[in-house]
Amino acid sequence: MVLADAFIQGILMGFLFALISLGLTIIFGVMDIVNFAHGEFLMLGMYTAYCLSISLGVDPLVTLPLCGAVGALLGLVSYYGLVRYLLRGPMVAQLLGTFGLMLFLRYLAVFLWGIDYRMIKKGLLVGKSLTIGPFHLDMTKVVCALLSLVAFTVVSWIIFKTRVGKALRATSINREAASYMGIKTERMNALAWAMGGITVGIAGGLLANFYYIYPMVGLLFVMIAFATVALGGFGSIKGAFFAGILIGILETVFPIIGHLLKTSIIGPHYKMTIVYLAYFLVVVFRPRGLFGWEQ
């Protein structure tokens, strides 16, 4: 029973992880760059929801579009202000560049809001739960899961059904060929960063409803996102979705197993360790990811 409950909680968290990873995988897919600052985009999304809901006194859910807008802005500014220049350099420079961005945004948050843990206490869904049979589900998490589904549907639709999506995919397959075909690849890069920013900004706004908000929160989630994207296959959207759910289950069920086995070696304090290990094992033994249907 405990296990079944954990399982369901895990799936719900998994939807969120998938949403967080979506932007990372889009950016990687289009331009082969790992955005280390992705977790910081999420963190800033969380602070956006927090600040707006406090200062305007509105429900945190209302702020979601603004969280998305902040994310998109962040993505565009990062792209035009930094990443564009990084692309000319070697890969070392690309890695360090977005790493620098990560540090910058993290300590910008420290500067602006301090290192205290904050929490949204008031809101339409905060603290409410949904009871289905024997399971008590956090309303926020349920809404989060639903919105994640919506986001995946919309993004998939854009990428696989629209003209812009076609151009994006062409860019991701072969940049040079795409530019011969008249696709403005620079703009496609920017679009990828904007889309990545929007999805992770919204994810941040949702996460703020039930998770502590603090400047270092990004690291935790970016590592989860890395693990998710690695598991699903770098650049794969479907992969990110299923891998997110898998990681969610892994992360919640694992500590429970330790509890059931009455051992302290497996326990909640190693929850993250398991995610890091999962990443490590996947990239070492199956670099294409578990699903690996897209190159």
Binding site: L82, Y85, L86, G89, P90, V92, A93, Q94, L96, G97, F99, G100, L101, M102, L103, F104, R106, Y107, L108, A109, V110, F111, G114, I115, P215
Partner: peptide, 22 residues
Amino acid sequence: ELMGVDFMIYAAIIMFIAAFEP
């Protein structure tokens, strides 16, 4: 009140080096 500024400066240096003089 200036907490975090030191790391912002390092971060700016990292980004600058990475972008212009790897």
